[in-house]
Simulated assay, not measured.
Amino acid sequence: MSQTSTEISLIELFDFLKERKVGAVKMMGISLLIGLIIAFTTPKEWRSYSEFIPESTNNSGVLGGALGGVAGLAGLELGEGQDGTFNPELYAAVLNSTPFLMNFLEHETYFESIGQEIKVRDYLKDHLKTSLVSRVIGFPKRIQNIFSSKGGSSLSDEAFDPGIMKIGREDIDLIETIKSRIGVDYNKGTSVVFVSFTMQDPMASAVLTEYIIEYLTAYVSDYQTSKQAKKLQFIQGQVKRKEVSFLEAQRALAAYRDSNLGLSNNLAQTELKNLQSQYDLEFNLYSSLKLQEAETRIKVEENTPVFKVLEPVKVPVERFKPKRKMILIIAITLGFLAWVLFVSIKFIIRTQLSPRLLGKGKAND
């Protein structure tokens, strides 16, 4: 019985909707108009991107193994430990870090749309266009910022720790804008890294995408090679100092031999042996350091990551936003659904609630 009444109700609802189909046309027309306003007041955006694979080269090479063997014969221990590689899943954290974003704001690039080279910060403040919807939605926040900036307290520069970054409200808003325009994705299965940047200038979008990738690759390379690079720098300093003492011992031995030719007394032979021992010691130390320098240099090269580019950065031809067809389809769909919801509620009130209220009224009489 209930199933039959439900079917009848659905049929009645369908007939009720059909009788008011003119309202559906009006609602979808209004939604279409709103969609047109949104679609054609939203500024055009272009997105540049690149895809690459970070190839880790962290294994000991053939030459490194050979030098290790020679060093072993000399009684040296050069070490075979490997440095950890930078996890690609942290690439997004690097590009969302405040130091990078502050440097990014100060980076100068050429914006074709305005015909001049300016800082990213200045372009975002003075030339970045916003949509009508964004202005309407962001109006309360702008009013709040005006009042909060008037009543806010500020720290004096003398009392501020120079080791801590001091960022103003304006920079915070600009940083959030940059974050929303940077895209980073890492595919674990294919090991492909996708980096993109969206801007209202196609040429600037490509140039800034290239800048982001250069910063990221330099950061990763420095992370993986910094330990061995510092070790190499230290060893090179030791090699230079030891080379001086080795050459001094070499010259002292040669000079003594030249000035004491034909002498065979015990005193001369003892002095010669002492100079020879000093020379041998300096030679062994100098040779050991040169081996360590060569081994460390190889480790620096091995730990330097290689980035294989699959898709290079290109100047975009087609706009990324706004997707006008999609906006219009969504607007019409939402308008139709809103009409169905409104009419259905009206139908329920008329067929379900009104009879009950009338029944209660008669019972009270």
Score class of each variant (00 low, 15 high):
77 E>S: 07
234 F>N: 05
116 Q>W: 01
67 L>V: 08
145 N>H: 02
191 S>M: 10
55 E>H: 05
3 Q>V: 02
46 W>N: 02
22 V>T: 12
163 G>W: 02
189 G>E: 07
95 L>S: 11
300 V>Y: 14
297 R>Y: 11
304 T>S: 10
4 T>V: 11
103 N>L: 06
363 A>S: 11
194 F>E: 01
149 S>Y: 07
264 S>Q: 02
298 I>M: 13
283 F>E: 05
140 P>R: 10
190 T>P: 04
228 Q>K: 06
239 V>A: 09
321 K>E: 14
273 K>M: 15
83 D>S: 14
283 F>Y: 06
299 K>I: 09
19 E>C: 10
245 S>M: 02
259 S>I: 01
50 S>I: 10
138 G>C: 09
17 L>P: 09
218 A>V: 08
163 G>S: 08
74 A>K: 10
123 Y>A: 10
202 P>D: 03
314 K>G: 03
136 V>R: 00
327 I>R: 00
179 K>H: 08
50 S>C: 13
306 V>I: 09
318 E>H: 04
354 S>T: 14
279 Y>G: 02
5 S>H: 14
59 N>H: 05
94 V>K: 00
279 Y>W: 04
216 L>P: 03
72 G>S: 13
42 T>G: 05
6 T>V: 13
145 N>S: 15
37 I>S: 09
74 A>Q: 06
264 S>M: 02
18 K>Y: 12
251 R>P: 00
4 T>G: 00
290 K>M: 13
183 G>W: 01
8 I>V: 14
357 L>W: 01
330 I>N: 02
289 L>W: 05
210 E>Y: 01
269 Q>A: 15
53 I>R: 03
177 T>S: 14
118 I>Q: 13
142 R>G: 08
131 S>Q: 07
192 V>A: 07
306 V>R: 15
222 D>S: 14
4 T>K: 10
145 N>Y: 09
270 T>W: 00
310 L>M: 15
314 K>M: 12
110 Y>Q: 06
206 A>D: 07
67 L>P: 03
2 S>A: 11
157 D>Y: 05
48 S>N: 10
348 I>H: 03
197 F>Q: 01
252 A>R: 05
44 K>N: 09
133 V>Y: 00
64 G>M: 06
189 G>Q: 03
77 E>K: 07
218 A>T: 13
4 T>C: 00
189 G>W: 00
178 I>F: 05
211 Y>C: 07
8 I>S: 15
271 E>K: 08
168 G>R: 05
125 K>D: 04
82 Q>M: 13
14 F>A: 15
332 I>L: 14
361 G>A: 14
54 P>E: 08
39 A>Y: 03
258 D>R: 01
198 T>G: 07
266 N>A: 10
262 G>F: 01
253 L>D: 01
155 L>E: 06
57 T>K: 11
